[in-house]
Design a protein around this nucleic acid. Structure first.
Lengths: 236, 236
DNA sequence: TTTATACTCCCCAATTCTGGGGAGAGGGCC
DNA sequence: GGCCCTCTCCCCAGAATTGGGGAGTATAAA
């Protein structure tokens, strides 16, 4: 049994967020880095995190609404693949100030973050952070990227278990016509245009939209489209 | 250099979709399974696939619009974690007929599919398929799940390189107010409600919505919200 | 066979959204 | 200091969407 497997086993024993917390500490020691952080946004947009950052830094981060300008958050939100912090856009004044503040609160200057996404807009970031020069960090990444990737997924699996109510709504199923209707609306078609595309009367189209709205528990059409999109029921 | 690294190297040499195709064949032989498939939907909703399925089966699949009812596609679309095909919902008549048709065209009865998602609605499936009994398949999964996960990500990285035009639009940046406006609309608020939440006049809110619409190149509000959502600019 | 879903069509009136236009104050960037 | 972007407010009339309601046929599940 190798070290990675032992780490994963430790993680799998976690029964709550504190357990994840303990795992990040274990990982930090294993990789001999300064910090390991797992940050997660669930399908209701609620955020939580587990990591080795000092509580002062976490509080300061939330207090100052750094989420809004943190290039790691913003950059990873648009990305697909793991990212070395050095590749991100730190050009804005606010970003540089944020970085300075972070290093002054114990955050290392190097970071590697793996973004992961779920079907309902869930979004998770798994980060390793350390203080060293660029070359050392590159070496660290190239030798550990795969393990970190596996661990990121394991964290995700665990976080998913903690999702209260097992995802709440069990994903309403829309009929093919309803899905088509939602898709056309998401593409910017008006009802008349969408009805025309589907070769049905606009009245009929409306019935589908309303049915979809009810199934999705949406307050209006835009809401319904947003939910269908966020649930992965349709793709634009 | 272990076998996994050699496989990844081969994959990284791929310069086009045919290269990916060759890699799937290499993987099939390495894992000694019947099929390996990488299926990808890019940000414009265009699909493509690389895999070892027979061309007859691929044609038949597309022709019969099996995408609509394939439980693997549908199931993975809603999921976060890799899935053993046995866990999917094969209860509907259509699904069972599809499965029968698949096995008659060379598809093995066992499968393991890893879903991956990108920030703009990109969606990829990496699948290993074989014909054996449940126990053998479980054993295969438990010993190869991690390698498959790593490979899935490598495929993704490669597929991303092939995205023409480097993602086309470089993600328009919306102002904080515009983002808030889009977010409230995505949550189902009417303009009046959203304006109230933001403590601004409805007229002002409208300006933000229109600005966002223009930046996003959207045809109407619903379209704008859909784009903002699909671009990962906002989360519901 | 019965039940359920999905699909298609139609009515109405109230509400909301959409298309432009203009204008002033404040902030950050070069 | 000048420029650009953001934020805030306002006008109007026409077009579109939304809230319910009902009702028939066909196909699929129990």
């Amino acid at each position: 049994m190798d070290a990675l497997e032992r780490l994963i086993e430790g993680l799998q024993r976690a029964e709550n967020v504190e357990g994840l917390q303990a795992s990040t500490e274990q990982l930090r020691d294993h990789f001999a880095v300064r910090h390991v952080i797992y940050h997660w946004v669930n399908s209701r947009g609620e955020r939580f995190g587990a990591g080795t950052y000092s509580s002062q830094w976490v509080d300061r981060y939330l207090e100052r609404d750094y989420l809004r300008l943190d290039p790691v958050i913003f950059g990873c939100f648009q990305r697909f693949t793991p990212v070395n912090w050095k590749e991100l856009d730190w050009s804005s004044k606010a970003a540089r100030a944020f970085f300075k503040d972070a290093t002054e609160h114990g955050v290392g200057n190097q970071g590697y973050t793996i973004p992961l996404r779920g079907p309902k807009g869930q979004f998770a970031l798994f980060t390793a952070n350390d203080s060293c020069d660029d070359e050392q960090w590159e070496a660290f990444i190239s030798s550990n990227a795969r393990d970190l990737m596996i661990l990121a997924h394991e964290f995700n699996k665990k976080a998913l278990e903690f999702e209260t109510g097992a995802d709440g709504a069990p994903a309403p199923s829309l009929s093919p016509r309803e899905l088509s209707a939602m898709t056309y609306l998401a593409k910017g078609f008006s009802r008349a245009q969408a009805a025309n595309e589907l070769q049905i009367s606009e009245h009929t189209l409306r019935v589908y939209i309303e049915a979809a709205r009810h199934k999705l528990g949406a307050l209006n059409t835009t809401h319904a489209v947003a939910r269908a999109l966020a649930s992965g029921l349709i793709v634009v």
